[in-house]
Nucleic acid binder design. Structure first.
Lengths: 208, 208
DNA sequence: GTAAGCCGGTGATTGGAGTCACCAGCCCAG
DNA sequence: CTGGGCTGGTGACTCCAATCACCGGCTTAC
């Protein structure tokens, strides 16, 4: 597979001029699933643009985590962007959800590119907006939905991101990504199964 | 009070050139406390920059609200910004917390100004980042803190924004802004009082 | 083969918060 | 001055989720 031209077509919306800059200064890198890319408190010097796969972004707080959103193809990470612009430490944790291919842009260059290339400026505004909206949804779910619904939505979203109808995932992980406990998830899953909304077999979860 | 030069000094960081544009195209307007500026689902054509006072921004969802943050002097509203850029309806509700003075920028002009004036571009990036960080904090509070702590933090923040040590506020309003019920707040306030963290007298709340 | 570890599953219990119903005190309008 | 509106305050109850303790089944390491 010709990666170099590949990502250029995928990121075509950034414009030829910027693509040329990227070709020179950005680094293409692959990560296996479950690689931790950023930890909380870390200072970041590279800004990722996902080409393939997905990165999941967490908030961690006092030993407990909460899945905030996924970064998918053609998307970038506003937290790294912010972290480099204001030289703040990262407030989130980022882990590859699947084997992923990522274009890494040097932070100092991005500072300049944002000013020179409206397409990149546009991308980050759009990303900020999208992430912000997602967070508001997350908050509303947290505040007003029962755990049943949160778990179900979580499964739907994960299935959408991974593009699989069968999910291979442990109760423990679900619990961790939703910031709750394993037994609680087990019970909720039982209920969802009884309600005919999911099926569990051999550690696989099928969404109906 | 000479308002016209007044806001120009306050917004000096935007640069002379942009200030001239603002002078021509922006509108200075005052609102009494508790004026609803934006409702959920509304399409916005004006982007506010607060000069004096404060605007509180809510998420409302199935009849319940949640206070997200305050827009204070020299700050703007990213939700309006987004709403106008992507022509999406507003996902939030905005109400003046106090008597406020606001500079209203026409949405279509802002589109252009953002590209032409890095200072404005910068302002919105900075605002996005700030709001985003605040939301993450809110989420962590929601997930991991007891209501006691949430209420206390809420009171601290409100006292900071209004710059008053005594708050004149009803339990009902606290409940509404935190997305809970009045009786619950009453009980929490009782506990906070017994713990010596606040004092309640004649409907005034004093933070210790 | 056996011990250790992870997996889902379950019962008992606790605690936080939301809900319902009702009270007294206060103020204001008519 | 009286009724209706607001305020805070309370008891009783319910519900959901978290926690603790413990299971049997399965895989893996040694």
């Amino acid at each position: 597979m010709d990666n170099s031209t590949n990502w250029q077509t995928r990121l075509h919306f950034l414009g030829i001029a910027l693509l040329n800059e990227l070709e020179q200064h950005a680094v293409l890198q692959s990560f296996p699933a479950n690689t931790t890319l950023v930890r909380e408190g870390q200072y970041v010097k590279l800004i990722p643009v996902v080409l393939q796969g997905a990165i999941k972004v967490f908030s961690s707080f006092e030993e407990k985590d909460l899945l905030l959103y996924y970064i998918q193809a053609s998307e970038s990470c506003i937290m790294s962007f912010a972290a480099c612009q204001y030289n703040q430490p990262s407030r989130i944790m980022a882990i590859t959800e699947e084997d992923s291919e990522v274009l890494l842009l040097p932070a100092d260059k991005v500072q300049r590119w944002v000013k020179e290339y409206p397409s990149l400026n546009q991308l980050f505004f759009q990303q900020y907006n999208q992430r912000y909206t997602e967070l508001i949804d997350t908050i509303n779910h947290l505040l007003f939905n029962r755990l049943d619904e949160r778990v179900y939505q979580y499964l739907l979203e994960k299935s959408r991101v991974k593009n699989e109808t069968q999910l291979n995932i442990r109760h423990r992980q679900i619990a961790q990504e939703l910031g709750t406990a394993r037994e609680v998830v087990t019970r909720v899953m039982k209920r969802l199964e009884q309600e005919g909304r999911i099926q569990q077999q051999d550690g696989l979860i099928k969404i109906m």
